[in-house]
Nucleic acid binder design. Sequence first.
DNA 1: GTCTATAATTAGATAGAC
DNA 2: GTCTATCTAATTATAGAC
Lengths: 215, 215
Amino acid sequence: MQESNRKRGRSSKISRDRILEASLVEFAENGYEGATTASVARRVGVTQPLIHYHFGSKEALWRAAVELAFGRMTTVLQGVEEDVLRAEPRDAIRIMARRFVYFNARYPEVARLIISESAVRSPRLEWMVDKHLRPLIRQLEVMFKSGLEGGILKPLPIQSVVFAFLGAVPHFFDAAPLIDLLWGFDPLSPEYVEAHADTLVEMFTTGLFRTPDVA
Amino acid sequence: MQESNRKRGRSSKISRDRILEASLVEFAENGYEGATTASVARRVGVTQPLIHYHFGSKEALWRAAVELAFGRMTTVLQGVEEDVLRAEPRDAIRIMARRFVYFNARYPEVARLIISESAVRSPRLEWMVDKHLRPLIRQLEVMFKSGLEGGILKPLPIQSVVFAFLGAVPHFFDAAPLIDLLWGFDPLSPEYVEAHADTLVEMFTTGLFRTPDVA
DNA sequence: GTCTATAATTAGATAGAC
DNA sequence: GTCTATCTAATTATAGAC
C-alpha cells in the first residue's frame, strides 16, 4: 500500500485502475461507438492522452474493461458452485438465481456492456464471445442439463431460457433512470433488490399464475 | 400515389421514409451517441445533408424514429385488447404475451431503441417517457391489476414483473448476432420465434419447475 | 506517470447549384 | 428534393516537455 497523493483532481498512483473502472461505466452507458476516451478522462479527472499512455488505444481499453467485467462475473459464479453442491437441487437453482440478481444489482454495467455489443456482428463481439461468453454459457448449459436429467426442470429449449433470464435480471437495474422516471424509486436500493430477487425466483420457478393450471 | 423513379440508388420520392426506417435500425444498433447521420445516409444510399433537409437535425431524426417505434407498438397493443375481451382471462394473458413476442421478433429495433436510452437520465429519455412510455406502462398496470383482482396472478410487485418481461422477450431477438455465434441459429426464423413464444409463456405462467413445489 | 500541444480524421450542420 | 462543397467542433492518437 502506497499512501500518496489521491483525491487531488490531477495525479494519482492508482489512476490506471480508476480509468479502467470509469471506462466500464462509460462503455456500458454509451456503447463502444458512443463512448469517448475524453469522457472517460473527464470522469476520472485526468487528461485524455493519459488513457493512451496506459492502454494504447480505445479498443484496447474496451478489451480491458471487458476483462474486468467477466472477471467479476466468473468470481461470483464460482462462489455459487460451492453452495450448489451443498443444497437440495431445487434450492440450488434458487440460490444461483438470487446470486445472479445480487451480482447485477452490484455491477449493473457488466450485463449492459455485453448487451450493448450483442446486436451487431463485429470483431469485438466475436472476441468477447470466444474468449469469455461461450465458456460461461457452456457452464450454464451443463447445470441446466443436470436440472433436466434430475427431473427438476421442464424440457424447454435452453437458449430461450438462458436469454430470457439474462434479459430479465439485469434490465431492472440498468434501467434505473427509466424506473425512477416511471415510478420514482431506485431499483438499486436494498429493499428493491431483495424484492426483485424474490419476484424473479418466484416467476421463473413456479410462474405468475396462482393456480398451477396445467394445460 | 405518385408512381415515379424508385430503386435507382440516388433520388427517390419515398426517401424520407427510407431514411426514417434506416435511422430506427441505426439508433437501435448503436445508441444515440454511437449512431451517425452519415451511416444512416449510407444505409439508404443518399447523401448526408439530405437527412438535414428532411429532419432538420440528428435529434429531430431520433425523435421521429421513436415516434415510428411507438406507433408500431401501440398498434399491436390495441389489437391485443380486442382479443383479450373475448378470451378466458388466463388465455388472454397468454395471448398478450405471445403477441408481444411476435411483435419483438418482427421489429427487434423497437425495444432495443428504448433500452439503449434507458441507462442514462437525459432530456431525450425524459421526453420519451413522458410522451410515449408512461402511458403504455400505465395501460399495462391496469391489465396487471385486473389480473390480480381476478385472482389469476400472484401478488408480486408489478415493476419487477414488467421489467422482467420487457427484458426477457426482446433480448432473444435483438441479440441475434450473439446467438448465431453461440449456437449457430437465427432466432428470428419462424420456428425459433414460435419456440421462444412457447417457452416464455410456459415460464412466465407456470414456471420452469416440473412439480409445483409450493414453498 | 502526467501534462500541453497538435496532427489527422470524422462528426453534425449550412450554403448554394441543379 | 437531392447533390457538392465546406465550415466548425469533436474524436482518436502522437510528440515531446516536465
